[in-house]
C-alpha cells in the first residue's frame, strides 16, 4: 500500500482542476457540474464550490448514478444499490462537467454518458477525473486530470474523501 496523495495535495489538485475548467470555459452561463456516484459526487461538489468562490456564481450541480446503465449486470452476483440521480436542472444545450474519482477502463464513463443523454442533449460533455490510472478498454479520455498514475491491473486505486471515509487521501493497493 502506498499513499499517492494526501489532504493538501488533493485540495491543490482539485483547485488546479477548477482553474483549468474555468480557463477553458470562460463563459460559465451554461456550465453545469455532475458527479458520478459515489466519490465523484463529493469531488463534483468541491470543484463546484471552488469555481463558485473563483467566479462568485453558483453553478448547478447534480449527481448521477450509473447502475442502471452498467454493462456488467449479467456478470455480478448481486446488483449494487441504486442511488439517487439528482439532476434538478435541464441539461439541454448545456456544457456538462462530468466528475469522477478514478478513470480506469472507461466503462463507467461510457455508462454515465449514456445516462446523461437520456436526460437531454447537452451541447458538450467534458470529463474531469482526480486520477487517471490507464488501462482503458474503451476509446475515452479525460479533459482534465488531477494526476496521472501508471498502475498495473493487479493494483487498485482508492480515493478516500472526508465526507464518506473520514479522510482525504489517494491510496494504491495490491489486489488480494
Amino acid at each position: 500500500m502506498a499513499k499517492l496523495m494526501g489532504k493538501d495535495e488533493m485540495r491543490r489538485a482539485l483547485l488546479r482542476l477548477s482553474h483549468q475548467i474555468l480557463e477553458k470555459n470562460r463563459e460559465i452561463e451554461d456550465l453545469v457540474v455532475i458527479g458520478i456516484h459515489r466519490r465523484g459526487v463529493t469531488l463534483a461538489e468541491r470543484i463546484s464550490k471552488m469555481m463558485e468562490e473563483i467566479k462568485g456564481k453558483k453553478l448547478p450541480t447534480g449527481t448521477l448514478d450509473i447502475t442502471l446503465y452498467r454493462d456488467d449486470l449479467t456478470r455480478i452476483a448481486y446488483q449494487p444499490m441504486v442511488r439517487n440521480t439528482n439532476i434538478l436542472f435541464p441539461i439541454d444545450e448545456k456544457k456538462v462537467v462530468l466528475v469522477d474519482d478514478v478513470l480506469y477502463t472507461g466503462r463507467t464513463v461510457r455508462a454515465a454518458i449514456d445516462a446523461l443523454l437520456d436526460f437531454g442533449r447537452p451541447k458538450k460533455i467534458e470529463l474531469v477525473v482526480l486520477i487517471d490510472r490507464g488501462h482503458r478498454q474503451l476509446p475515452i479520455r479525460a479533459d482534465y486530470v488531477g494526476k496521472n498514475i501508471p498502475t498495473s491491473p493487479e493494483e487498485m486505486v482508492e480515493v478516500r474523501v472526508e465526507e464518506l471515509d473520514g479522510t482525504d487521501e489517494v491510496l494504491i493497493l495490491k489486489r488480494i
Binding site: 448514478d65 442502471l68 446503465y69 442511488r83 439517487n84 437520456d118 436526460f119
Partner: peptide, 14 residues
C-alpha cells in the same frame, strides 16, 4: 430511483 426515471424526458433505462 425508478420513480425518478419515470419523470425524465426519456423514461427508459437499458
Amino acid at each position: 430511483s425508478f420513480r425518478a426515471v419515470l419523470e425524465r424526458p426519456i423514461r427508459k433505462v437499458p
